[in-house]
Design a protein around this nucleic acid. Structure first.
Lengths: 251, 251
DNA sequence: AAGTCAGATAGATATGATAATTGCGTAAAC
DNA sequence: GTTTACGCAATTATCATATCTATCTGACTT
């Protein structure tokens, strides 16, 4: 075995390997196995043993074990001697892990998942905006304004719409000065990236800038309740669209 | 090395080893290293190499690597050749991982952390109650009622107050029928366990039962807004207490 | 029927060797 | 003097193998 590891890695895990993960065999295995679990490949079949996994992917058992341990840490697997490695029920997966989130989103586009996303956002972001109105530093308020400015620029084609939208919402989360709210950064980014195609198809986003500006103005004015309501309206609108889509799809 | 592993494990990680983690050396290492990181033991010193960690704790490098990989999966560490293993900034820790959460809480009782906890709860739980009012199944409504009944029983000394409180709030989260909300189960349990000593010290919880009943009644009546408001009042009260405690502590 | 023990299975651990990566210092080149 | 090239060394990454430990199964015993 005198070939370069990177060559082997790219051979085993060709293109779909996420760049946010490392380039090691271990991370490659993590990605491959994690995605397979999320897809449901092992839903009705027994999960292979470590030895089988290692052999199937042509890597050592040490690498396999490290990948399995990482998936255990993320709540997807559990391992016991003699019983083997088993896939945990989805309720114990750590859905706020960005890897798990990515695997879930790559699996399939599901309006239901999008609704669950935005049902969470409608709880988190208005409250984050309310906190930001009270507690954000000047720098953080500036960042929120910069996000809004990017959205305006994107409207004129001078910036990326999605990136600008994400920047705004992330800035609000940062402004909450609460580490738990900041954790939702990846989640919101994923939700926006997923929903932008969806919402754009249904309804023009022209009104969106004004809605975002209302949030910004309230935060600047240190109007906590105003910020909460404005943000709630913003996300509530998306939620209504999703609800309508689900209703028409089921009839 | 012909001694039993369990003996070595209990020797290295005597009593403080959490039972939710496995009894293996790997999980013991995970717990010990994770706690040390959260405590801040490596804040201003270089993180040891794998070989040093293994030697210091008297385990093999394989075990050490698996523990490090799990901590990497939880966002606490990152490892690169030549650079070594380094502790990630707290912003990239996965705070919704129950291990990380436990380590954080064991570190020190911090009113600030408690406030951050409840600032999140005041976003999540009212919305969960609102969703539950609309979407919960009969069985889930029954579970919420059972939680309330346990609280009443606890009032009379026939049940554990904390366990009953947790059961009620978890039942509401389950009733939301949204997997993301269900993820907050551990978080809410930890928050309640941490805050019960705090709030009990300040103010009797006699009014609490009525507040909880208001939530339950609104959910039963399928009154979404009523459930949201009732739950918001419940947690908002705690938040006010925490704010007062912080204010008096700083003066 | 209940308890006990042997075998089999699969993860857990240890160990030693080798490969890959990359920060850093030094020398060469411009 | 500055930049580039190159090689050393440190550290993680990987592999291979052997042994240990936990636990299920089933046969055997009482």
């Amino acid at each position: 075995m005198n070939r370069k590891v990177s060559a082997i890695t790219t051979e085993i895990f060709p293109s779909e390997m996420r760049t946010s993960l490392g380039r090691n065999l271990t991370y490659g295995m993590l990605d491959v196995i994690g995605r397979a679990i999320v897809i449901g490949e092992y839903d009705n079949v027994a999960f292979p043993t470590e030895a089988e996994l290692a052999r199937k992917h042509g890597v050592s058992r040490a690498v396999t074990r490290e990948a399995v341990k990482m998936l255990t840490a993320k709540g997807l697997l559990s391992a016991r001697p003699r019983q083997g490695t088993i896939v945990q029920p989805q309720s114990s997966w750590n859905l706020f892990d960005s890897d798990v989130l990515h695997w879930l989103l790559e699996r399939k586009f599901s309006v239901e998942l999008l609704r669950h996303f935005n049902q969470l956002r409608v709880a988190i972001e208005p409250e984050a905006a309310a906190l930001a109105a009270i507690q954000a530093t000047d720098a953080e308020r500036t960042a929120i304004g910069a996000g809004l400015a990017r959205m305006v620029a994107a409207e004129a084609g001078a910036d990326n719409t999605l990136a600008a939208d994400i920047a705004f919402h992330v800035a609000v989360l940062e402004g909450s000065r609460n580490p738990f709210y900041k954790q939702f950064r990846d989640m919101v980014a994923s939700a926006l990236a997923t929903s932008i195609h969806f919402t754009n198809r249904i309804k023009g986003r022209t009104a969106s800038i004004e809605d975002h500006r209302a949030v910004y103005d309230a935060i600047l004015a240190r109007d906590s309740d105003g910020a909460r309501c404005a943000m709630r309206r913003l996300i509530g609108d998306v939620l209504v669209l999703i609800g309508e889509a689900e209703a028409t799809a089921s009839t």
